[in-house]
Amino acid sequence: MKRLSRFNLIALALGFAFLYLPIVILVIYSFNASRLVTVWGGWSLRWYAEFFNDSAMLAAAGMSLRVGAVSATMATALGTLAAVALSRGEGFRGRALFSGMLYAPLVMPEVITGLSLLLLFVAIDAERGFWTVTIAHTTLTMCFVAVVVQSRLGSLDRSLEEAAMDLGCDPVRAFLRVTLPLILPAVAAGWMLAFTLSLDDLVIASFTTGPGSTTLPIRIYSEVRLGVKPEINAICTLIISLIAVVIVAASLASKLSSRQGESAAPL
């Protein structure tokens, strides 16, 4: 009964073409020798060279990578704790508010989140720069980490934790020795998601950054507003490659964990 009709196939083919063609075209044109973005002038790496000589762009890229790494790490720690509390903590006071605060930022328009964080930073007179952007990104991305880890915790067999405790582990040790290794791939996937989201964010960073701490998306955005530039294609291709590496690593990690899960099952 579960059959693939021709209609299904056409929908899939068109859908994936729509999703991927623009990116493929962008990547191809990043190797274009011509200054005119739309005229093909043969293969060349000159726009990559241009990027690596553009010190302002490089500084912005460095800033973004630092913000991404620090905020993803903090978000992973906080998000994992939140997921554990929500899926193992049963009922506690303020739980509805807690989960609401964690789910709302997933859909909250970024202009609202960005504006409200900036007003907080101004009110407490925090100097705007690296740390304000990092805190803002942590706040946003920890919610994504929490959802990813929570859905893994929800599908985990709880009898493993209970068995560990029956065998004399205290809850914290049972978590560290049994639960954490099992959810580690989801935690890693959460970190990578947080990192890429931070690397990608324009709106919240624009609100919360200060002079001298321009991130890559802010820089790219100001260039793109002036029109299409081949150098931007090259930068975008580099970012896409970086993210592709991250995704391959993530899928390898999850494959490794499912193999572990299989070997753990007969025990």
């Binding site: 903590g89 506690f92 807690f98 964690l102 920890m142």
Partner: peptide
């Protein structure tokens, strides 16, 4: 297990109260 798991909420809870 529930009680230490609830304590795990403290840090992210405070973070979201403060920054969200």
């Amino acid at each position: 297990f529930a009680s230490p798991a609830r304590r795990a909420a403290i840090a992210p809870y405070l973070w979201m109260l403060l920054f969200f």
